[in-house]
Design a protein around this nucleic acid. Structure first.
Length: 577
RNA sequence: GCUCUCGUGGUGUAAUGGAUAGCACAAUGGUCUUCGGAACCAUUUGUUCGGGUUCGAAUCCUGACGGGAGCACCA
């Protein structure tokens, strides 16, 4: 990286002055003054008891003459660095030869998506898909080996509820025998009905619980019926995944963990980590200073705790398994078969405490080896324009498919306006780009307000704008005369080159922050830098052939970086739109 | 009640403790008989409030106010 080269120059110059300190280089906050800046003189001067401005001057004077950078000092004590034209050429070559190896071949297991079988996906579900898929691609780019698992919620009550409902309606047998075709619509109708009935009808609820237990114990016909439900649901989820351009190596779920539950229960028992509490089997995971009882004011008051960290529950008092049990059993068999160095989960931030409990239980029991890194990225909730849970215009919960259809329709409408011929795949790519870019532009941990109208507008800082920019570049390159690469860049290319550098740096920033908003931001800046250039300089009619080849060379580089960044975000770049 | 989290123009958001708080939408005005107008350029408007730490605070600490979430038998 160009910044580390500058940093090295500064540090070596300091050493000649007997100052053995680190001088960091960042992108310029004042692009009109410089291209890069160093703010370290304040801290170093303080440490050494020197005047910061004098220190900055001393170091700048000690830097040997070089052809790439010019250094200057600005008060109070910033070192400003500007690239020469030779420096621009050099930077472009550094960028093109850049290789990442943060991963060092380590194996990382990604757990994202997590849709529930039997329930229609709503908008909130897309976030895990978008973030997880992008991180899988980022990890690969950075030199990790990845394994992705969708981890379906396929072993719980929803399936029991659907079966109980169909049974109550007297159609269970028909669907079981195949006399009636089991479809996703049947499930999408039965589940909400059952879900509602369970609240009012205790007998129905008990029956659903019973059926749940039956299929979990692989009793027929419930287990086979469960398999049918799962197949139908998985086919539907796969359809959505294809639309969203996400794919998984593994389509496992809670059900795959069930056969390891007894093994992990035994591990906890043998290590004397589990105990019975109020009839349930629990593991204490609180650390010092947590879960401290607050004295009750009256004997019948509920016990409250300071710094609450309740025990993790492995078995309910009625003997049933909990979701946490599946999670731990899943970590157990992932380690048994895949030996990942890292397991990274992407879920809603509301599950933060639950994952702390799970991770601690796995470390205490040795189910996760000490050296294994368990990561959980809890992302913020998507709300509607009003800051409350997202609703459709008619007031219902908005389903993911509703949103996708709106996006694809809008894309089609735009294509028709522009006279482009009808193309289902193209409108899907454009709609997806709008969705993903809008989603991933937000800091991962923050809740955000999802404004349908804003996402449907493809103007400004949006995915379609990025795609459009790439299409324009492709169009110019396809019409350009043959040219030899020419890296003799000048001031008019600088904005694009600096943006390229920022984009290249953002991979590491995203990796460290576990958020993709920086990549989106620098990708937009690059596209925007090209658009400004495009507007101020007519490339194809340039008479100076040497200058024209420099323009075209840079366009090739810009396109390459836009395509790479889009690929990480799982945004597809069409040739035309 | 306990714990966590967030508070940035009219709206949505960005900013490893650094210079003049960046960007998009909206609004207003402009560019251009397009190498693809889903474009470009310009103007207007902002760090919830009070203390503290620091050469320097949207950022760290503290208090208040205001939102959101979690607090074992739902997943």
């Amino acid at each position: 990286m160009i910044r580390s080269e500058i940093q090295k120059l500064l540090c070596e110059a300091a050493k000649t002055q007997n100052i053995d300190e680190n001088f960091c280089v960042s992108f310029s906050a004042m692009p009109n003054l410089c291209d890069f800046q160093c703010n370290s003189c304040f801290a170093v001067a303080k440490k050494l008891g020197k005047n910061p401005y004098d220190l900055a001057c001393q170091i700048v004077e000690a830097i040997p003459q070089n052809q790439f950078f010019t250094f200057s000092v600005a008060r109070p004590a910033f070192i400003n660095i500007t690239l020469t034209n030779q420096g621009l050429k050099h930077m472009s070559q550094v960028l093109l030869s850049q290789q990442f190896n943060l991963g060092g071949g380590k194996k990382i297991f990604l757990d994202y998506g997590g849709p529930n079988i039997g329930k229609a996906m709503h908008i909130g579900h897309m976030r895990s898909f978008n973030i997880g898929e992008a991180f899988k691609r980022l990890y690969r780019k950075l030199g990790f080996e990845t394994v992705s698992d969708i981890f379906l919620g396929d072993w719980g009550m929803p399936m029991g509820l659907i079966m109980a409902m169909l049974e109550k309606q007297g159609v269970f047998g028909d669907y079981y025998s195949g006399k009636k075709q089991l479809t996703i619509e049947v499930m999408n109708t039965a589940y909400p009905q059952a879900s509602q009935l369970k609240m009012q009808d205790e007998k129905f609820k008990q029956r659903a619980e019973q059926i749940t237990l039956f299929f979990q114990q692989k009793q027929q016909p419930y287990y086979d019926f469960w398999k049918k439900l799962r197949d139908v649901s998985v086919a539907e989820i796969k359809k959505v995944c294809r639309l969203l351009n996400v794919d998984f190596d593994l389509w496992n779920g809670e059900s795959n963990a069930s056969e390891y539950v007894s093994t992990i229960l035994k591990i906890f028992e043998e290590k004397k980590l589990s105990r019975i509490s109020e009839g349930a089997l629990v593991v204490d995971v609180a650390e010092e200073g947590e879960q401290i009882p607050i004295p009750k004011k009256s004997p019948d008051e509920v016990q409250r705790y300071e710094n609450p960290m309740p025990p993790l529950m492995l078995k309910k008092s009625n003997g049933g398994d909990k979701y946490e049990t599946s999670d731990i059993a899943t970590i157990y068999y992932r380690n048994k078969f895949y030996h990942p160095d890292i397991i990274h989960y992407f879920t809603d931030a509301r599950q933060n405490q639950r994952f702390i409990q799970i991770f601690r239980a796995c470390k205490k029991s040795g189910i996760s080896p000490q050296e294994q890194l368990l990561l959980h990225t809890g992302f913020g909730t998507i709300n509607g324009k009003d800051g409350k849970a997202l609703k459709t215009r008619d007031g219902g919960n908005m389903q993911l498919s509703d949103l996708l259809n709106m996006l694809y329709e809008k894309a089609e409408q735009k294509l028709v306006e522009n006279g482009t011929e009808h193309d289902d795949d193209l409108k899907r790519k454009i709609g997806n780009a709008a969705l993903k870019f809008a989603d991933l532009s937000n800091s991962v941990e923050k809740d955000y307000n999802f404004d349908v109208d804003r996402v449907l507008s493809f103007d400004g800082k949006t995915g379609p704008y990025i795609q459009y920019t790439a299409c324009r570049i492709k169009s110019i390159l396809s019409k350009a005369p043959k040219f030899e690469n020419n890296f003799n860049f000048s001031a008019q290319h600088k904005e694009m080159l600096i943006s390229l550098n920022r984009l290249a740096s953002s991979y590491r920033i995203c990796f460290e922050n576990k958020s993709l908003n920086d990549l989106c931001g620098s990708l937009y800046d690059l596209a925007s830098a090209f658009s400004s250039f495009y507007n101020s300089c007519h490339i194809l009619s340039e008479q100076d052939k040497s200058l024209q080849s420099a323009h075209l060379t840079l366009l090739k580089i810009v396109l390459k970086f836009i395509e790479e960044a889009c690929d990480i975000l799982a945004i597809e770049v069409p040739d035309k739109m």
